[in-house]
């Protein structure tokens, strides 16, 4: 009896989350796949016609938006690494007894709602706002200089909003680096630069790797930043999906676009994981 319940225990433990995933992930996914192949409209209803053209048309019409989304995703992810790594490094190695305080301060803005944060950026960056207003008044920047409604504004907003998802995994990885291993590098004649590039950096790469996945995927699918900060010229695929769905009620098209994006991201992550996520990369970095 005891042995039997022991064997069942693992299944019982995953049962709640399994049911949750089934109800709110797997079933909707299947419904959405089905929806993406339908034709019709809100008034006459939608029929299953296995209309593959939803996918082809979607890519044809919005190819540039896909490209822009991935490009913004790359830029913002790169910017996240550039900002997060030094901060995480400093906290992990020089934070002393106040590490968790510094980490908390870094994460403090993220206790505010995502939309609210983005809207407040809009207020700050607007043409006559607290930054550009005085700069224009004093003639430091020309009158036709904008930040809002530019690609820079969107990428900056994305970077800002997803920064914690890069900081935390990098911090965890750096925190786990054994100080004696770093000392061993110094003992073996490594300069500060080499101790970093040959030992600390390779040992923290798994954190960067995880951070990239955790930021690139949601950034590429984001629509709030482009909506609030980007204006009509900088729309991303997320905006298209949103307006097709809620604006035009073109559910099949929106679903097809969603799955196309999902497929692109999955393939991208898969290739990324296969090429960069291996031990050989770490080893090459340490050579």
């Amino acid at each position: 009896m005891a042995a039997k319940s022991g064997r069942l225990a693992p299944y019982l433990m995953i049962l709640p989350s399994g049911l949750w995933l089934l109800a709110f992930f797997a079933i909707p996914l299947v419904l959405m796949v089905s929806l993406s192949l339908q034709t019709g409209n809100l008034v006459d209803g939608f029929q299953q016609t296995f209309h593959w053209r939803n996918y082809v048309d979607g890519l044809d019409t919005y190819g540039d938006k896909f490209v822009r989304s991935l490009w913004y995703g790359l830029l913002a992810t790169g910017a996240c690494i550039a900002l997060a790594y030094p901060a995480a490094y400093w906290i992990a190695f020089h934070g002393g007894r106040h590490k968790s305080t510094y980490l908390f301060l870094l994460l403090l803005p993220y206790f505010v709602s995502f939309v609210l944060r983005t809207v407040s950026w809009k207020l700050v960056l607007t043409d006559n706002g607290p930054i550009l207003g005085p700069l224009r008044d004093h003639g430091i920047v020309p009158d036709d200089f904008h930040i809002l409604d530019t690609a820079t504004a969107v990428v900056s907003g994305l970077t800002y909003n997803f920064l914690p998802f890069m900081v935390l995994p990098i911090y965890v990885a750096l925190e786990r680096v054994d100080h004696r291993v770093v000392e061993a590098a110094y003992d073996l004649y490594a300069s500060r630069l080499h101790a970093f590039t040959k030992v600390i950096l390779p040992l923290s790469l798994p954190g960067v790797f995880a951070g990239v996945i955790m930021t690139f995927v949601p950034i590429s699918a984001d629509y709030v930043n482009a909506e609030v900060l980007g204006g009509p010229q900088n729309t991303m695929i997320g905006n298209v999906i949103q307006s097709e769905y809620f604006g035009n009620s073109a559910y099949p098209v929106a679903s097809a676009l969603s799955f196309t994006l999902m497929a692109i991201l999955l393939i991208g992550i898969f290739v990324y994981a296969r090429t960069l996520g291996t031990k050989d990369v770490l080893e090459a970095a340490g050579r």
Binding site: V181, E183, A184, D187, S191, V199, P202, E283, G286
Partner: peptide
């Protein structure tokens, strides 16, 4: 330490976990 001509064997060994045996030994 990196300018001293002495080397240390640490109590915990402190081997470089991301390198193989050859790379560890070749490091210095």
């Amino acid at each position: 330490a990196n300018k001293r001509d002495v080397n240390m064997v640490f109590q915990s060994y402190a081997l470089f976990p991301h390198m193989n045996v050859f790379e560890n030994v070749a490091f210095g």
